[in-house]
Design a protein around this nucleic acid. Structure first.
Length: 549
RNA sequence: GGCACCAUAGUCUAGCGGCUAGGACAUUCGCCUCUCACGUGAAAGACCGGAGUUCGAUUCUCCGUGGUGCUACCA
C-alpha cells in the first residue's frame, strides 16, 4: 500500500506536516532540571479533589525546579461538555493557590503562553496533521465500523463478548486489512470513519518502565489498535495527549492511576511518530468508605469530591491544602508540628514520597488540621473569613455580623492568642450555631440529673441577687464558689469522696451558670462571655433558667 | 473473563532482613482546671493467608485472598 497516497486520500486538506509544528513550537528555554507540568481537566463538571491533588504535585514540582505549570482544557468530548466548567477549573486552581503559570484561564480571559492554543477543541488541525503523519508512516488506518454507541451499549457489548470468548480482540483485523481501493470506495461513498493506530506491539513481550511514583516497573507492550481520531475528526485523549504534551514541552505527566493501564498505548503512539515520551507520575486515587466498601470518590454521589464543597462548608483553603499535602507526603504533619508558622512552600515536598495506595478521605483529620490552623489566626482575621463566607452563603448572618462586628470580634478573641488557643472552629458554617447565644435568645436548657434541682434553684436565685457585673475573672469565680458552697455544692475533692451528700460540686454550679447564660455545656471563658452579653441579658437568662427548673 | 495496581491499628502512614513495629487523627482513662476546651501523661489498637529463600522475615520470591482500576470513537 502506498501510505502517502492513503494519507492524501484521508487528509486532503491538511496543509502542514508534523515538522512544521515542531518548528513552530520549539523546545522551551528553561534552566537545567526545570520540569514542565500541566493539569488537563475536561470541562464535564466541577474540579475534583483529585484534580487539586494532581495540581499540587504539578505546581510544587514546577516551582521547585523553576519550571512551568500550565493548564490545558481537554474538551474533546463534546457530548459531556458543560458550559462554564472550564472557568470553574481555573478559578478553583487560583482560589486554592495552585495557579498555573500559563495556559487556559477561563472562557473570558485571554490565554497566556507561547505554546497554545491550550484548548483542545481549537487544535483539530494540529491533531489531524499528526494523524496524517501516522498514516504516512504506515502506522494508522481508517476504520469504517462506525461506532457512535452510548456508554451503555459499549458496556453491554463488552459483557456479551466476555461471555463468548476469553479476550476481546485487540487488533482490528477487519479494517486494518482493507485495500486502498476498498478504503477509497468507502470514503467516496461518504462512510464515516475513525483513525486507528496500527499497533505493532506484542502484549506477550514486556519492557521496563519507570513511573515517578510507582518506581521501576515491567509493563506489557501495547497490542491494541486504539482510536486516534474519532469519526467526528476530533481525537480522543490518547492522541491529544501525545501531540499536546510534545508540542507544549511537558516533561512530567502527572495523572491519575486510572491511566496506568493505557501508558503502553501512549508510548507506542509517541514512538510511532518518532517522538520522545515524557516522564510519567501516576497518582493514587482518593477513595472513601461507603457501607464498609472502599471506593473511588464519585462525582455524583459524594459532594466532598467537588472542591467547591469545602468553600460552601467554610473550610479555609489553607486547611484543605494542608490536608491534601498530608495525603501526598505523610511526613508533612511532622514538619508542620516542628514548623507551625512556616509557609507550606518551605516544606521539602517530593514526588518520591507519595505512597502508592489509594487513601481514604478522612473528615476527622481534615477537621483537626483546620481547627489547628484557625486557632492560630487572630480574631480579626477569623472574623473577616467568617464574614466573607456568610456574605456568600448566608446573607442574613452576614448582616448580623456587620452590625455587630465589635461584639463578634470580642467574642472571637476569648481564649484566642497565646500558647494554648482554643480549637473549636473548623469550618465557618458552624460558627452561627456555635456562638448563637451572643445574638439570639436561647432556649432553656436541661441540667444534669445528678444535680439537685432545688439547690440549683436556690443557688441561682442568690447568684442573681448578688450578681456584680464588674467583677474580674478571679473575683467572679470566687463569688460563684462562695454562693455555691452555701447551697450544698461541694469542693471538687469533697464531692468526689461522697457525691450523694451534696447537690453537686463547684464545677456543676459553674456549669449551671454557663448553661443558663449560653444554653451550651461547652463555651469559651464564661466570665468574658457574660461581660460581653451585658448585665441585663445575663440576669434575664439566669431568671429564665430558674423559671424552667 | 482478561490485564494491571495496591495490601502495617477504625483512618492516614513510617519502616526499606534482626526494632519492645514509630508517629498523626479518632477512641478510652488520669492530671491540670470554674465547665467545655486547650495543654499534658497514659492505655487500648496493626504487619491479609500459605508456601519458599534465609541463621532470621512486616520487609525478598511465588501462590492464594481481598480491595481498586482499566478492558469506550469518556477523560
Amino acid at each position: 500500500m502506498d501510505y502517502n497516497k492513503l494519507a492524501e486520500l484521508l487528509y486532503p486538506n491538511v496543509q502542514h506536516d508534523m515538522q512544521y509544528y515542531l518548528n513552530v513550537y520549539p523546545a522551551r528555554k528553561l534552566p537545567a532540571g526545570a520540569e514542565v507540568t500541566r493539569l488537563g481537566p475536561s470541562p464535564t463538571g466541577y474540579l475534583h479533589i483529585g484534580h487539586l491533588y494532581s495540581a499540587m504535585i504539578s505546581r510544587i514540582t514546577a516551582t521547585k525546579t523553576h519550571g512551568v505549570f500550565y493548564l490545558r482544557l481537554e474538551d474533546t468530548d463534546q457530548k459531556r461538555y458543560i458550559p462554564g466548567a472550564g472557568d470553574v477549573a481555573y478559578d478553583m486552581l487560583c482560589y486554592y493557590g495552585v495557579k498555573p503559570d500559563e495556559g487556559y484561564r477561563g472562557d473570558n480571559l485571554e490565554q497566556i503562553g507561547e505554546y497554545g492554543d491550550y484548548v483542545q477543541s481549537h487544535r483539530t488541525e494540529i491533531y489531524q496533521t499528526f494523524a496524517k503523519e501516522l498514516v504516512k508512516r504506515g502506522r494508522a488506518f481508517p476504520c469504517f465500523c462506525g461506532a457512535n454507541d452510548s456508554k451503555e451499549d459499549i458496556l453491554e457489548r463488552r459483557e456479551k463478548e466476555l461471555s463468548e470468548s476469553e479476550t476481546i480482540t485487540e487488533h482490528d483485523e477487519h479494517c486494518r486489512n482493507l485495500s486502498f481501493e476498498q478504503i477509497k470506495a468507502n470514503i467516496e461513498a461518504g462512510k464515516p470513519w475513525a483513525l486507528k493506530l496500527l499497533s505493532t506491539g506484542d502484549p506477550e513481550k514486556q519492557h521496563d518502565f519507570v513511573d515517578l511514583i510507582k518506581g521501576k516497573r515491567v509493563i506489557r507492550e501495547n497490542g491494541k489498535d486504539i482510536v486516534l481520531v474519532k469519526s467526528n475528526g476530533i481525537p480522543p485523549y490518547a492522541l491529544a495527549h501525545v501531540v499536546d504534551d510534545t508540542l507544549m514541552g511537558t516533561t512530567i505527566v502527572v495523572r491519575g492511576e486510572e491511566w496506568y493501564p493505557s501508558v503502553a498505548a501512549h508510548i507506542e503512539t509517541f514512538l510511532a511518530l518518532g517522538l520522545k515520551p515524557p516522564k510519567y507520575a501516576h497518582t493514587p486515587v482518593i477513595s472513601k468508605l461507603d457501607d464498609g466498601n472502599k471506593r473511588k470518590l464519585s462525582k455524583r454521589k459524594d459532594p466532598e469530591a467537588d472542591v467547591r464543597f469545602y468553600i460552601e462548608q467554610g473550610y479555609p483553603k489553607e486547611a484543605v491544602k494542608e490536608y491534601v499535602l498530608n495525603l501526598l507526603n505523610s511526613d508533612f504533619e511532622m514538619w508542620r508540628n516542628q514548623n507551625p508558622l512556616s509557609d507550606i512552600a518551605e516544606f521539602p515536598f517530593s514526588i518520591k514520597k507519595i505512597g502508592s495506595n489509594n487513601p481514604m478521605f478522612d473528615f476527622e483529620k481534615l477537621n483537626n488540621i483546620s481547627k489547628n490552623i484557625i486557632s492560630r489566626w487572630p480574631a480579626e482575621r477569623v472574623f473577616a473569613e467568617i464574614y466573607a463566607w456568610a456574605e456568600k452563603f448566608d446573607g442574613k448572618y452576614a448582616n448580623l455580623l456587620q452590625n455587630n462586628k465589635e461584639t463578634m470580634i470580642k467574642m472571637l478573641s476569648i481564649d484566642r492568642g497565646g500558647d494554648r488557643p482554643r480549637k473549636d472552629i473548623f469550618a465557618w458554617s458552624m460558627v452561627k450555631d456555635l456562638y448563637d447565644y451572643i445574638f439570639n435568645d436561647i432556649a432553656p436548657a436541661t441540667i444534669d440529673e445528678r444535680i439537685n434541682k432545688n439547690s440549683a434553684k436556690d443557688f441561682l436565685k442568690e447568684y442573681i441577687e448578688k450578681y456584680d457585673h464588674k467583677l474580674d475573672k478571679q473575683a467572679w469565680f470566687d463569688q460563684i464558689k462562695q454562693i455555691a458552697l452555701g447551697h450544698n455544692f461541694a469542693d471538687n475533692k469533697e464531692y468526689k469522696a461522697n457525691p450523694s451528700a451534696y447537690a453537686g460540686n463547684v464545677a456543676d454550679a459553674c456549669n449551671l451558670v454557663r448553661v443558663a447564660v449560653t444554653g451550651k455545656t461547652a463555651t469559651p471563658d464564661l466570665c468574658s462571655i457574660m461581660q460581653l452579653l451585658g448585665k441585663d441579658k445575663v440576669k434575664n437568662r439566669l431568671q429564665n433558667m430558674i423559671n424552667s427548673l
